[in-house]
Amino acid sequence: SVYRALPMCTCGTYQSVTKMAVSLLILSILVTSVLSQSCNIRDTDEGSVCVCNAKYCDTVPDLDVSTGKYQVYSTSKAKLGFYSTTGSFVENTDGEESSIIIDQDTKHQSIIGFGGAFTDSTGINIKLLPEGAQKNLIESYFGSSGIAYSLCRVPIGGTDFSTRGYSYDDVEGDDTLEHFALQDDDFDFKIPFILQAKALRNDNIKLFASAWSAPTWMKTNNDWSGIGSLKEEYYQLWADYILRFFEEYDKQNISFWGMTTQNEPIDGYLPKFFSKINSMGWLPSQMNEWIGENLGPTIRNSAFSDLKIMLHDDNRITLPVLLLLLDNEKTMS
């Protein structure tokens, strides 16, 4: 059948319009009254928002539709977030056909999930909140009453979202990774909140890891940022280092679905004047060799052999570089 949406109302007289206006005014007062009891409304240049605190945090209204009806969630300057409206469909009687066709046999790309990142700065800011507000905030992102994030990134070591540059083995020349160890930053700012998110999602969350930089002593410029890449003699050690990261997080009951090979490798070829974030440069030829000869075999022959290895974690302007990676048989195997 062909359907069209019913209008909200059909008002043909001044009296009807007046009654509707009064009704809407009363409804507005009632809604404002209810919200004021739970939501601490704050006006901003972008509209009104509810402040997340120990007593209240935004939730997503339950989906409540049946056959022939629809429900829409919207957020705008004029309304608070997750504003829910419902309506009904009826058969089209005006003779004009308007069809929505869903062809289940035609499939395009898959959506793996939606989410964010467990960075040091995220953990630092969450820890500044009272305990009740922390709980509500995590619930609003990962809980069943929230937006249910299901895909999240975890840095391997320090990033531009850290208060310092650090790695898991800053002992120069440690070729056996004897001194490899997770840092206080992991135990204070990342691991606790990852575990809370996992509990709220009943472990139904995909985590993927990304490295910003190897330890400085493994790099050509001996620095966290600036023009520098991984020294070739450390290709295998860097692969072993990443494997150790997965092993150490596994001891904390945190497993990973995937990883990217490098955060924004183009940044490692920018002078420090332009980019001061933790970075490490890779050319396509270098990345192909490292993945094919070192990282790939190391991961595939480990207890984490099902880990997804994702290429080209960078800005879209550098997509032509991806074609050079995809064209390499050893990298793609």
Rank of each mutant, 00 (worst) to 15 (best):
V154N: 01
P155E: 00
P155N: 02
P155M: 03
G158K: 07
G158V: 05
G158A: 14
G158T: 04
G158E: 02
D160L: 13
S162G: 11
S162M: 14
S162E: 14
S162L: 09
G165A: 13
G165H: 09
G165P: 10
S167V: 08
Y168G: 02
D169N: 13
D169M: 06
V171P: 07
E172C: 06
E172I: 06
G173C: 00
G173Y: 01
L177I: 02
E178M: 03
E178Q: 06
A181D: 04
A181K: 15
L182V: 01
L182D: 00
Q183R: 13
F189K: 08
I191A: 05
P192L: 01
F193T: 05
F193V: 06
F193C: 10
I194F: 05
I194P: 04
I194L: 00
A199P: 01
L200Y: 12
R201Y: 06
N202C: 04
N202T: 07
D203F: 00
D203L: 00
K206I: 08
L207D: 05
L207V: 13
F208N: 15
W212H: 13
S213Q: 15
A214S: 15
P215L: 10
P215E: 13
P215Y: 13
T216N: 08
T216K: 14
T216Y: 14
K219R: 15
K219I: 01
T220I: 11
N221H: 13
N222G: 05
D223S: 15
S225P: 07
S225I: 04
S225H: 15
I227V: 15
G228M: 07
S229E: 08
S229P: 04
S229Y: 12
K231D: 15
Y234W: 07
Y235V: 12
D240Y: 10
Y241T: 09
I242P: 06
R244C: 01
E248W: 02
E248S: 04
E248A: 11
K251D: 00
K251W: 02
N253I: 00
I254L: 08
I254Q: 08
S255T: 06
S255F: 00
F256W: 05
F256C: 03
F256T: 03
F256M: 08
W257A: 02
W257G: 04
M259Y: 06
T261N: 10
T261I: 13
Q262R: 13
N263S: 12
N263T: 11
N263I: 09
E264G: 14
P271R: 11
P271W: 14
